[in-house]
Design a protein around this nucleic acid. Structure first.
Lengths: 99, 99
DNA sequence: CCGTTATTTCGCGAATCAACGAAATATACT
DNA sequence: AGTATATTTCGTTGATTCGCGAAATAACGG
């Protein structure tokens, strides 16, 4: 859990992992929901979540018999929105980053 | 030059490339300056610049016999600052992103 | 045109990453 | 304890990335 900026970028530099981060920006999720979202095997999704967690992008807690993941770096959501907007040629003003 | 968010993250997910992006946020540079900065061979630096350019993070123009690179996505600088601050446990308010 | 400087492209071996099934671990329920 | 569900870890195999030297390109000055 080093929170090295390079690790954050590398963690998000994969379609499934970015998709997971974007989903978590809308609310916490358990692994099965995320598994359905990205459409990969349990082990693959778990590995992706591990990468995101080690980079400090997400963290998790156990609730009952399932593990709930949440976005630990909200600025990732705003930055990604910014990139998505930029890819459509739009300009975006973002008030806050990092919380 | 797809400007796919995943490509942006992947491009920045390498120490040398992030270093280049951060340097360019302070001002434009030619390739030799960037080569000295990251301390790699010409071919390696050129390849890194190519990755950044294809992702839409930087662009370049020829001035005389040298190629000058500039940061095409200013929000990368603010987001990276945000991550650096977060890694030190600080909170940061950023007014604007993307321009 | 020729040499020089600046940069990119090519090709390759070494290292890292990705995805998955199988096995292991954890937790809850009975 | 024993079973079922949820998730992670392990081992492997194929794909991708990294870094570099050598060769190719581009632009300038003589």
């Amino acid at each position: 859990m080093t929170l090295d900026p390079v690790d954050v970028f590398r963690a998000l530099g994969h379609p499934s992992r970015l998709q997971i981060a974007q989903a978590l920006s809308e609310g916490d999720s358990c692994v099965s929901d995320l598994r359905q979202l990205v459409g990969a095997s349990w082990s693959t999704v778990s590995q992706h979540l591990s990468v995101l967690k080690n980079a400090g992008v997400v963290d998790c807690s156990k609730q009952g018999n399932q593990v709930v993941y949440r976005l630990a770096l909200p600025c990732v959501a705003t930055f990604t929105q910014c990139l998505v907007a930029a890819s459509k040629g739009q300009k975006v003003e973002l008030r806050t980053c990092c919380s």
